[in-house]
Amino acid sequence: MSVAELPGQQGLHLLYSDHHGWLKGWLYKGLGNAADAADMAHDVFLRLLVKPASRGFSSPVDARAYLCAMARGMCVDLWRRREVERAWLDTLAAQPEPFEPSPEFRMMVIERILEIGAVLARLSDKAQKAFVTRRGRSASRAAPRPRRRRRRAKWCSTPCCSTWTTPMAR
């Protein structure tokens, strides 16, 4: 009996029992870490449980191809998240010693960066470049510039002078 012929939970159980070990080994080759491979394999099946495949699998080859495609996408998400976390930790390391944000703040910043990345991924290349260029310029100007005090013009109060002057610097 193929997976396509079985109702939801039984089909998923059969798919899990037939392909979990294989998927974990395949992920281990790509990730190089047994713990990450096991987590990712379970996450793939958890995602299948939450959002089942739109069609059944007529053969084990189809099932493995679908599982590989899901796992590959989830690995890309994992690598992207780790890259963002690494960049954030590098930024924190460059901060002065007294600055130590809370773990909640760190997670909030990382989540926000990932949300921005997801929104940018939906834009055209031209729009992405415009956004990054604009934000890069404003970030370089984010440091406060020393402000020059503007001298206010005042009327000279001496009777001999009838012109605008600026106060003398003290």
Score class of each variant (00 low, 15 high):
Ala65Met: 10
Gln95Asp: 13
Arg72Leu: 11
Glu100Trp: 12
Pro103Tyr: 08
Ala65Tyr: 07
Gln95Cys: 13
Leu92Arg: 12
Thr91Lys: 03
Glu104Met: 12
Arg81Asp: 09
Gly73Phe: 09
Glu100His: 13
Met70Asn: 01
Ala65Ser: 08
Arg72Thr: 08
Arg64Lys: 15
Asp77Lys: 04
Ile110Asn: 00
Cys68Lys: 01
Met108Asn: 05
Phe105Pro: 01
Val76Lys: 07
Ala69His: 07
Pro101Val: 04
Arg80Thr: 05
Glu111His: 12
Glu111Trp: 08
Leu89Arg: 15
Phe99Glu: 05
Pro98Ser: 06
Pro101His: 03
Leu92Thr: 06
Arg82Glu: 15
Val109Met: 03
Met70Gly: 02
Glu115Cys: 13
Ser102Leu: 08
Cys68His: 05
Leu78Gln: 03
Glu83Gln: 12
Glu97Thr: 05
Glu100Met: 10
Arg82Met: 14
Ile110Gln: 02
Cys75Met: 13
Arg72Ser: 06
Asp90Glu: 13
Ile110Trp: 00
Leu89Cys: 14
Glu111Lys: 04
Leu114Ser: 01
Met108Leu: 09
Leu89His: 14
Arg106Pro: 01
Arg80Pro: 01
Leu67Tyr: 02
Glu85Lys: 07
Arg72Phe: 11
Arg64Asn: 12
Leu89Gly: 09
Glu115Trp: 12
Arg80Trp: 04
Ala93Arg: 12
Met108Ile: 07
Glu111Leu: 07
Leu89Phe: 15
Ala65Val: 11
Arg86Gly: 10
